[in-house]
């Protein structure tokens, strides 16, 4: 099966910083892949490079098997939906209009229906008519997440979808992404909460200093050695009735 997203040997600079130093990532239809790593590891840059938003100095980025640099705006949008980490909204549009921007390439009526459906799924149906700048930060994040759900692309790329959400909404967001994967979409998501990542992701890719360190099931990727080396944590994933939980503390210096 053609991967929905594939980036390999990626090298890229952001200004003077070597942001990517040989990172690789592959996401297939039907799976949720978690991209984890410490602050500044290059998670967002890798995601943006895979979507063609950062120019690669070396390596290749493909969406749906096609070189991302050669895609038109329309082709790229048809292959990937993207939720950036940036949550700023310029104008105080009603929540449903923000969500409907995810379906902007559909006619107004279906776009509106897709938006209302997505808002209902994130529990924001009642706020559909409210100005998005009048909402709380977490509510706004849910509306923006609904916009991602309203896209029809076969790949969903979400940068920190759980940031700023209450615990219940964090679980809900990841559960919704799992539903999308079950429906056949490919999902790539960056996360900081390793417990959440271990529970929600089929596969986890760990990156540090712009390079891929580990890639496998949560158990395979988040080993005590990786936790120590990449995150500076002394700990492990332990199984509980609710699912795996990261039990860890800062590693002694």
């Amino acid at each position: 099966m053609t991967p929905a997203l594939e980036i390999s040997g990626a090298r890229a600079r952001l200004g003077r910083v070597e942001a990517l130093t040989g990172a690789s990532l592959c996401v297939r239809p039907g799976e949720v892949v978690g991209l984890v790593g410490p602050n500044g590891a290059g998670k967002s840059t890798l995601l943006r490079a895979a979507l063609g938003l950062v120019r690669l100095q070396a390596g290749a980025a493909r969406l749906g098997g096609r070189d991302v640099a050669g895609l038109s705006d329309l082709q790229r949008a048809a292959l990937a939906g993207y939720l950036p980490q940036e949550r700023r909204v310029g104008w105080n549009l009603p929540a449903w209009r923000i969500a409907a921007l995810g379906a902007a390439n559909r006619p107004p009526r279906p776009a509106r229906e897709a938006a209302m459906q997505a808002l209902a799924r994130v529990g924001m149906a009642d706020a559909a008519g409210r100005g998005v700048l009048d909402l709380s930060g977490g509510e706004r994040a849910r509306v923006l997440f609904a916009r991602l759900l309203a896209t029809a692309a076969p790949l969903l790329a979400a940068d920190e979808p759980a940031a700023g959400l209450d615990p219940d909404s964090q679980f809900l967001a990841l559960e919704l992404l799992r539903e999308e994967a079950r429906a056949g979409r490919a999902v790539i998501v960056t996360l900081h909460d390793l417990t959440l990542a271990a529970r929600a992701c089929d596969r986890i890719v760990v990156i540090a200093r712009g390079a891929t360190i580990a890639d496998g099931t949560p158990r395979e990727a988040l080993t005590p050695a990786v936790l120590a080396q990449v995150f500076g944590l002394d700990g492990e994933l332990i199984d509980t009735a609710a699912g795996p939980v990261l039990a860890a503390r800062r590693a002694p210096a």
């Binding site: 943006r48 979507l51 938003l53 705006d73 329309l74 790229r76 949008a77 048809a78 990937a80 939906g81 993207y82 939720l83 950036p84 940036e86 700023r88 909204v89 310029g90 104008w91 549009l93 209009r97 923000i98 921007l101 902007a104 390439n105 923006l144 916009r147």
Partner: peptide
């Protein structure tokens, strides 16, 4: 209207 969500969201909107 797409730019209200920032340059990167707009860049992947298909416009």
């Amino acid at each position: 209207v797409m730019l209200t969500l920032g340059e990167e969201t707009a860049a992947l909107s298909g416009l």
